[in-house]
Design a protein around this nucleic acid. Sequence first.
DNA 1: CCAAAGATCGTG
DNA 2: ACGATCTTTGGG
Length: 203
Amino acid sequence: MSAADRADVVRRARELLGRTIVGHGVTVRITEVEAYGGSEDPASHAFTRTPRSEIMYGPPYRLYVYRSYGIHLCANVVTGPSEIGAAVLLRAGEVVDGHDLARLRRGTPPGRDVQLARGPGNLAQALGITLDDLDTDLLAAHGDDGDSGFTGVRLGPEVRTRRRIASGPRVGVSKSVDVPWRFWLEGDPTVSAYRRSPRAPAT
DNA sequence: CCAAAGATCGTG
DNA sequence: ACGATCTTTGGG
């Protein structure tokens, strides 16, 4: 992966901030993401090219879903270009539509909406994303029935966010711990807490 | 075949 | 600090 490719995945990660993603009737405004640098990033699933990570080497703006710790699902946007293996993990967001459905899926009481999509596992759950959604084209045009009743997963249009973007090390990774490829909207209450991997090398 | 690790989360 | 829970991966 060239320096230009690294700059690319970082730019795409930052461009996802403030953008909406709709998942099975719930809309979330993305507030926190992490960039993963493909075959040359030891922290990336694409570091070893296997059947699971193959999708990361495919065309951009497809959905990569994986099971984490046997319990949660995490949603990523493959950012391309093909054969690079770059992707962006969606870490947190603010539910802006479909609150009732999101609360139902998450089992959180009203008044705790800030945590509906805080953390990658929670975000995917709020959006109702499952492994069936793997490889969804996130930019495909909707059907002719308009937005109401749409049951798939799609990204909304790019936005120009007014918020400052902060950055820092990625959460939970045990390798390349120093790489500051986590990006979030500064001061947003839906951003998840930083947690260093327990397996990260001591400083 | 088996064992281990893991881009997490909630509770204690 | 710890346990839940399961798929993928790599070694023998």
